[in-house]
Amino acid sequence: MKTVKPRYLENSLQVVFFMCAAISTITTVAVIGILAFETWGFLQHVSIVEFLFGTRWSPLLHPKSYGLLPLLAGTTLIVVGASLVALPIGLACAIYLSEYAGERARNVLKPVLEVLAGIPTVVYGFFALTFVTPILRTVLPQTDVFNAASAAIVVGIMVLPMVASLCDDAFRAVPDNLREGAYSLGATSFEVTTRVVVPAGLSGVFAAFVLAISRAIGETMAVTLAAGATPNLTLNPLESIQTMTAYIVQVSLGDTPAGTLTYQTLFAVAAVLFLVTLCLNIAANMIMKRFQEVYE
């Protein structure tokens, strides 16, 4: 006959787990709620058209103006620059790792990438300011002390490990028997890689790219340190700019009283940031799903 085990522990643990799940859900909902509420308040004073399409951003200095485009341009510069660095190099790294590297090279490179991914972002910002910027200024003397290019380069280096690692996963998920099939038709390694493996892993590659872009958009520390605080509607990467994230830092560090319009701009900008990265992450997830179904 079975003895009935006491269920107290199990039941109480269940409650604990439920609480943990509940807390994270509630937090997310609360954050979204506050963002929406404050943004709503902001939009009572500034029309959404002016906010999204205005070309001057000056919420702190008179004459005040709340056009988001300069911040969007700043973020765009960083994202484009970082993508130019991270996407091709990350893809090439992944191709090397999954198709060419031997066990030994892999065993060295994978941990190096992980270390690169684990460096605190403030170190990257510092590195941009003290190392990348001086080089840029030597090569291109017209470069500002704070400039988008330097920040974009380090943000690119920062997201590169993620791109390399996700693309590597995508390529390694391509079954070996496809490679064998290609080789048996007289293909070279290069042809197998470019005409079978990369196309077969393409949705994984796209997902990696989207996630990298999403991270570059949200990146804060390096751009605050290296890119400047000048909301400048420009596409010149050598100028000082301000990104959406850097603006949030700037105002958060100041002593803007709660309830003012300036205070509310924080939430409006954060809401835009949140929506953009949310959309990108959803897109990446959808692409990933497709990619998982291919070989089932």
Partner: peptide, 17 residues
């Protein structure tokens, strides 16, 4: 060149996607 002249069919069908 060898594999170009000597083809192979594998145990499990492995068409490209």
């Amino acid at each position: 060149e060898v594999r170009l002249r000597i083809g192979m069919v594998f145990q499990r069908p492995n068409p490209f996607p």
